[in-house]
Design a protein around this nucleic acid. Structure first.
Lengths: 153, 153
DNA sequence: TACTTGACTTAGAGTTACTCGAATGGAATA
DNA sequence: TATTCCATTCGAGTAACTCTAAGTCAAGTA
């Protein structure tokens, strides 16, 4: 049995959020002690883990709640729940793809700064080199080196 | 030169968001036509791409704004900007790690549903098998198959 | 020429998911 | 008993959209 504080620390989320989720009815197995304090057993912990993962993959609170309710309705909802999870998997794959794009962008930036600070490539690093969507180094070289002035930006 | 609608489509963001970002002053190079309509040139497009990537890696609007302002101040701010970007890279790496965890969780779920629906493993799939933090299949087998009843959840 | 359509504008309200703070109250310790 | 420590609820605040209303402007059509 965990208190709010303990479960929050264990699952690395804020106590506020834990209370919020329980208040939203996302943890059907939640228990209380005689003073009304929330108590999480293994089941409640597992619900919270699931909620955290579904939220983190982009599901809204409302959607999570609906999923939880489907779970409580038993095996008649298996197929629809499977489809929900499958859909979520697809979204997650999409997000991972975007994340990787972002990572490449940031990596590119880091290298750009390193080059500049080492006095290599002091300005025009051939505009249009960044991926398919145009180079931000074009902007950067302009913005950061101020060769033209702020008005023209 | 792109209109709001065009740039929004091109960068896959809502027109609302594009306007919101420009209103927040995140695109210093923004132009307007004689009627006050926003016009995005390559520079503005590149700013937007940068903003999108920084936001997507967890930077707040305010933080992005501060970064943009640092850019406009020229090369005297190179070092601090480099540190900001480096910090953002670290955050992204953290996010990617979490994403992968989530993906494993969802994959596990998908397989769990497939197993159940194929009438393999109809109920107790050995509680405690999910990663280090306990098995949600424990909850699921309980919740979805309703062998005990909803009250006990 | 008048009318309609459509894309754009601003201002402001609404939404989601937290996030915080104040007021309250039981339980353990000095 | 007083203080401290948790935990509680409730309501307000915040960030980042998201949407709606009301209005402007230019182009196309009857």
């Amino acid at each position: 049995m965990y208190t709010v504080k303990e479960i929050a620390k264990l699952l690395d989320m804020s106590e506020h959020t834990v209370r919020y989720y329980t208040d939203m009815g996302l943890v059907p197995s939640l228990k209380r002690d005689k003073n009304g304090n929330r108590l999480f057993d293994e089941q409640s912990k597992n619900w919270l883990i699931g909620i955290k993962n579904l939220r983190g993959s982009g599901m809204s609170i409302q959607a999570v709640k609906e999923y939880v309710n489907l779970c409580l309705q038993g095996e008649s909802t298996l197929k629809i729940r499977y489809e929900i999870i499958l859909e979520q998997k697809k979204k997650l794959e999409e997000q991972l793809k975007e994340m990787n794009e972002r990572y490449k962008y940031i990596e590119h930036k880091v290298n750009w700064y390193l080059d500049i600070m080492n006095h290599r490539i002091p300005d025009n690093s051939n505009p249009g080199t960044w991926s398919t969507s145009g180079s931000e180094s074009q902007v950067e070289s302009y913005a950061s080196l101020g060769s033209v002035g702020h008005e023209a930006l």
